[in-house]
C-alpha cells in the first residue's frame, strides 16, 4: 500500500512544529510531540478514508485518494501559511563539541539520538509486541492473518497512524535542521524515503536506516564527482537498479516479493 500523502504529512508536521515554537512554547521537544500528534491524526484519517473505505476497490482508487490528500494538504498549507518559505527560530545551532575539524551541533545530536530511538523502538514494537506481530502477519498475507483472528483493520490503521506520526516528527526535525518550511517541502523526502527503504530492504527496519545513510553518502559523493544537477538522478538510478536486481534491498529477507 502506498501513501502518496506521506510527504505532505511531513510538511504538516513541520508547520505544526513551527506554530508551536513561534506561538506557544519555544521548545523543540514540545514541537516534536505536537508533530507526532498531528502526524498520527493525519495518518489515521488518510487510512480511514483512502484504504478502509476502499478495501476491495481497485488499487488505483486508493492511490488516487492519497493523491487527493496530498493535494488537499499542500493547498491547505498554502492557504493557511502562505506559499513563501518560512524559517524556524534558531535552536541549538551552537556547537556542542568539536572533533578535529568537525563541529557537531546540539541539533545534530538530537537528530541522531531520535533516529536511534526510532530504530530501537520500532524494532521492539515490530518484534516484541502483539501489535507488531499482527503487522508482520498482515504484511505477509492479510487474508490469512484475518482468519487467524488478527483484527486486520486495526493493525492497518495503527501501522498507518504510526508511519504518519514518524513523518510528522521527522518534519519538525527536518524543518529545524534546514531552517526552512514551505508547502512544497514534502515531495522530495517522500520520494527519498521510499528510495532509502528499498535500498536498505523494504521489510527491514535497520535496513531502512542503513539505506537512508547510504543514500545520503552516495548523493553527496555524486555531487562531488559528477555535478550537483545530477544529484537526484543518482538517487533514482539506484532506486531503479535495486528494484530490478535486488528488490529486497541490502538487508531485506528473500521471502518477500
Amino acid at each position: 500500500m502506498v501513501n502518496f500523502a506521506l510527504g505532505e504529512i511531513y510538511m504538516f508536521g513541520a508547520f505544526t512544529g513551527w506554530l508551536v515554537v513561534t506561538y506557544i512554547c519555544p521548545n523543540i521537544f514540545v514541537a516534536m510531540a505536537a508533530g507526532i500528534a498531528v502526524g498520527w491524526l493525519l495518518g489515521f484519517i488518510i487510512e480511514k478514508s483512502a484504504f478502509k473505505a476502499l478495501r476491495g476497490a481497485p488499487h488505483i482508487a486508493s492511490l488516487i485518494c492519497t493523491l487527493g490528500f496530498s493535494v488537499l494538504l499542500k493547498e491547505l498549507a498554502n492557504v493557511l501559511f502562505g506559499a513563501e518559505t518560512k524559517s524556524m527560530p534558531d535552536f541549538f545551532s551552537s556547537s556542542a563539541l568539536t572533533i578535529g575539524q568537525a563541529n557537531i551541533t546540539w541539533l545534530q545530536i538530537i537528530m541522531i539520538l531520535t533516529a536511534a530511538i526510532i530504530l530501537i523502538g520500532l524494532q521492539l514494537f515490530i518484534y516484541k509486541t502483539r501489535m507488531g506481530l499482527g503487522i508482520r502477519a498482515v504484511s505477509m498475507d492479510h487474508q490469512a492473518a484475518g482468519l487467524m483472528g488478527i483484527n486486520v483493520d486495526r493493525v492497518i490503521s495503527v501501522a498507518f497512524s504510526l508511519s504518519g506520526a514518524l513523518a510528522g516528527l521527522v518534519g519538525v526535525l527536518g524543518a529545524t535542521y534546514y531552517n526552512a518550511l514551505n508547502p512544497h517541502m514534502g515531495f522530495s523526502p517522500g520520494m527519498k524515503g521510499f528510495t532509502a527503504a528499498v535500498f536498505g530492504g523494504i521489510t527491514s527496519i535497520p535496513g531502512a536506516i542503513l539505506g537512508g545513510y547510504l543514500l545520503g553518502i552516495i548523493e553527496n559523493l555524486s555531487v562531488q564527482v559528477v555535478s550537483s544537477g545530477y544529484r537526484d538522478f543518482i538517487a533514482y538510478l539506484i532506486l531503479i537498479l535495486f528494484l530490478l536486481f535486488r528488490p529486497n534491498g541490502i538487508l531485506g529477507k528473500k521471502s518477500k516479493l
Binding site: 488516487i64 490528500f69 488537499l72 499542500k74
Partner: peptide, 13 residues
C-alpha cells in the same frame, strides 16, 4: 485547489 483535493477524495471514496 483545496476544493480540488477534497473532491478527488470524495469521488474516489
Amino acid at each position: 485547489m483545496v476544493l480540488y483535493g477534497l473532491i478527488l477524495i470524495v469521488i474516489m471514496m
